[in-house]
Amino acid sequence: MTNVPLLSVEGLTMRYGTRTGCADVSFDLHDGEVLAVVGESGSGKTTLLRLLAQELAPDAGRVRYRMRDGGVRDLATLDEAAQRLLARTEWGYIRQDATDGLRMSVSAGGNAGERLMAIGMRHYGQIRGAASDWLRRVEIDPARIDETPQSFSGGMRQRLQIARNLITEPRLVLMDEPTSGLDVSVQARLLDLVRGLVTELGLAIVIVTHDLAVARLLSHRMMVMRRGCVIETGLTDRVLDDPEAPYTQLLVSSVLAA
């Protein structure tokens, strides 16, 4: 295990006109670490995620990433082709709305296998085999490999998104509210799946959520955001059990206990 962080974020700032999307956000993320970003809607969580994914360009600050060869690169200095290659091999991005993250008219197998084809795999049998294997790992019956996600439930769609992203064994996965809108039982199954994959594959994850229970269950560390600023950061159980900032105390005390 190296001591160089996989992802190193420094002073990331982004404004939408006069409104702040994200202000001076800095953190390191190591292999196998799960960082939860929590906060209410409009707190800048998703902006941060899109900045990390290079989908938005920051007004200030930089994101550095440790490549597979060990070299650390400022992502803004990579050309578009290199960025996109990273995005489909080294990273995953699980969208809140599965219809944004899947090709809804393409079969489950085609969705799961797309990244393999994108990196040049040209053997139908192997692609299908890998897709089928990943469907099984995310608890989708491989017999449904030729169905389109249109016929899938919300939970299955999210799991298919995970299979589609993880098939190239990325090292970093960005997740945007992956469990919102799912029934609690379906949510539990998905979280269980993600927990398993984190341990099994040593994934580093940045998960954006407004659900503190999800953050507690999945993450090692937590970052509380409000109006684009990081209010508090630390070990997840520390932030939740001994919140320091007034806003964090309010957030924690507002959760309904089941």
């Binding site: 082709a81 996109r84 393409v106 079969s107 085609g110 797309e114 084809m117 994108a118 139908y124 299908r128």
Partner: peptide, 18 residues
């Protein structure tokens, strides 16, 4: 522009799977 043609292959994949 980036010669990303995985998508074309997805179309052929869909053909074979169907």
């Amino acid at each position: 522009a980036l010669a990303e043609y995985g998508l074309m292959q997805v179309k052929l994949y869909e053909d074979i799977s169907r």
